[in-house]
Design a protein around this nucleic acid. Structure first.
Lengths: 136, 136
DNA sequence: CTTGACTCTGTAGTCGCTACGGACTCTACG
DNA sequence: CGTAGAGTCCGTAGCGACTACAGAGTCAAG
């Protein structure tokens, strides 16, 4: 199938497919006589694999590793689990960071509610607060 | 003060200060006879303003807007609040996305716990799950 | 036979930095 | 006075993960 069909079938943006090929994440597909890329069902599965990995927040490098482990066959499971667990930890940390940010924003926005415009509490916070996250 | 001192005083990386100047987020500072940048206390405050904005996840463009609003004086408060609220919504959305990702990862990792290595549940999930987030 | 949709390649832009190379300046020590 | 080392200058390139574009070629339908 042609690249636009592979794109539709995999849910992966057309230009992104070419990008994955360029960086060696996807193999160079076979070509038609006139030079058009021709993808197999297996290629589409690989694209879906990558897309799902991205949806789960894995980096392209991590996905590369996962695919290598997948091809290795034996002993892969442990390594895969380790990679996934580390990734989960990273995600959880990012969540905590963002929650801290959200709390800080809420606090700041709330303090501005009054509407006395002589000085804006939000701008004030940006100017004078002791770096959010630092201190309690 | 020189750039390295301004860097220390503001907590903003030295090269980042030059970068902010290059993109017009910081004004061009005065220069010493030999061409060294010379920063005032006001400049440092501006740098801190930017850094705190970044810590709260605002983009440099949003920070640019905030600073413009700050200089406008009147009527700014409403606009500032709107900007901050929109940003809060974005942050909350990102948190939800990440939480979904974390749940999905936990589920997948858990299902791999057994350790029968004939086929890895994590890789399987990446291969066959109906795109996480889609469907319940 | 022409029109329009598709595909090709290569390159540049995005965001927010960070790092480098090679030249200059300044300070302290001998 | 000379020199070593630290600091600064500028311009450019790299990161990650795309996305967008220009200009050329290809293909199918009317």
């Amino acid at each position: 199938m042609k690249i636009s069909e592979a794109s539709q079938a995999s849910g992966c943006h057309l230009e992104t497919i070419r990008y994955y090929e360029r960086i060696g994440l996807m193999p160079s597909p076979t070509r038609t006589g006139s030079g058009y890329r021709s993808y197999s069902e297996q290629d589409v599965e690989r694209l879906r694999f990558i897309t799902r990995g991205r949806d789960l927040g894995f980096s392209l490098d991590e996905i590369r590793s996962l695919m290598r482990l997948d091809q290795n066959g034996d002993l892969a499971c442990e390594d895969v689990t380790r990679l996934a667990q580390q990734h989960l930890i990273d995600v959880q940390e990012r969540i905590r960071d963002l929650q801290r940010v959200a709390r800080e924003l809420e606090r700041t926005i709330r303090s501005c509610g009054g509407g006395v415009r002589a000085q804006c509490a939000i701008l004030d916070a940006l100017k004078h607060s002791p770096a959010p996250g630092e201190a309690a």
